[in-house]
Simulated assay, not measured.
Amino acid sequence: MTDREFDPSGERERSLGAGLFEREMGPSSSMAHLYRGEVHRMTRWRERLDRTTNWAVTVMAAILTWSFSAPGRPHYLVLVGLVTLGVFLGIEAHRYRGFDVWRSRVRLIQQNVWSHGLDPREDVDDGAWRRKLSADYHRPTLKVPFEEAVAHRLRRVYLALFSVVTAAWFIRVTSFAQSGPWPESARIGAVPGVVVTAVVVAAYLASVAVAFRPRTWYSRSELRECQVDDWRE
């Protein structure tokens, strides 16, 4: 950033967009290298999310295949698949919070640097975004609560997986039951089938509630359907 573009008083910055693609602000500038590095780290964390999802789908497919491969397979193996999906969901929610740290920085730069550079007629704001980015570099913080991260991953991937496994378990204890009619066929040891069914249904409804309950979203850069509708209009 040159003296021509920055007011030392801090009260106002001159048009950053007008000089963004000049030599001092071009692709070889420090800001461009900073942006490139943040995009790289964001991409790596995005890949970690994808790997967790791939493992969850693979394990779920293996458990369902083995459970339905013979009539005598115990139905609670499908419930083991549900518990395994819950573990993967927790891991992925944790990784999503880390991913959001880098994504929020990338979006901050895109909104306040590159968007103005592509349209030099716009003026840069009072520099609050720089102070925000500087503070985040001094002390990186997680922007998204864990419960919101769980809701994001449920909406994108895991609620569909939970629905498939829950439906498969219900089919397993009704159509393929070997120990009597449902709900007796859902028994696990000394635990009655009614109790097992109630726990499964309650767990599924809890996941739906977490995914869709009204909330204040702290992840500002998440693309949502309402934003797409606004853009189309």
Rank of each mutant, 00 (worst) to 15 (best):
V87I: 12
T65P: 03
S69W: 04
I91T: 02
E22F: 15
S28G: 14
R95P: 04
F88I: 06
T84M: 15
V124F: 08
S30F: 14
W45I: 05
V101W: 02
V87Q: 06
V106A: 01
L77R: 07
V78M: 02
T53G: 11
L20W: 09
F68A: 05
L64I: 02
D119Y: 07
F99K: 01
L82Y: 05
D125E: 11
I109M: 09
L34N: 04
R103N: 08
Y76T: 06
P120V: 02
G117T: 05
E122Q: 15
T52S: 10
H40D: 05
V78C: 01
P27L: 15
V113N: 10
E22T: 15
A32L: 12
N54K: 14
E92Q: 08
Y96T: 00
L20K: 06
R73N: 11
G117W: 01
D123F: 15
M42V: 07
S115G: 13
M60E: 06
R97K: 08
Q110C: 07
R103G: 04
L20V: 13
L64Q: 02
N54F: 13
G90T: 03
L77D: 07
R97C: 02
S67A: 09
G26E: 12
M42Q: 05
V39G: 00
M25K: 14
G26R: 05
T84E: 14
T43P: 03
V106C: 05
S104K: 00
G26C: 09
G19M: 13
T58W: 12
E47Q: 08
N112A: 10
W102M: 02
E24P: 12
P71T: 03
R105P: 00
R107I: 10
R23A: 15
W66E: 14
P74I: 09
V80W: 08
E92V: 04
P120N: 01
G90V: 04
A62G: 10
M60V: 03
F88V: 03
G90H: 11
P71V: 06
G98H: 12
Y96N: 03
H75A: 06
T52L: 10
R46T: 12
T65W: 04
R36T: 09
D50I: 14
R103V: 02
I91G: 00
L49F: 08
H33M: 13
W114D: 03
V39S: 02
L82K: 08
D100W: 00
V78G: 01
F99M: 04
Q110F: 07
A62W: 06
F68T: 03
W114V: 05
G86T: 01
P71L: 11
G90M: 13
L20P: 05
L49M: 09
R51E: 12
V106I: 05
Q110L: 06
T65A: 07
S104L: 01
H40G: 03
F21K: 10
D100A: 09
V80K: 07
H116D: 11
G117E: 02
F21P: 11
N54H: 12
V59Y: 08
I91A: 00
D100Q: 04
V83T: 14
D123S: 15
A62H: 08
E24R: 14
S69Q: 07
L82A: 11
L118I: 13
G86N: 00
A32C: 13
L85E: 00
L82S: 07
S28A: 15
W114M: 07
R105T: 02
S30G: 12
H40N: 07
F68V: 04
R107F: 09
E47C: 13
R36S: 14
R95M: 07
T58C: 13
F68E: 01
S115D: 14
G72M: 11
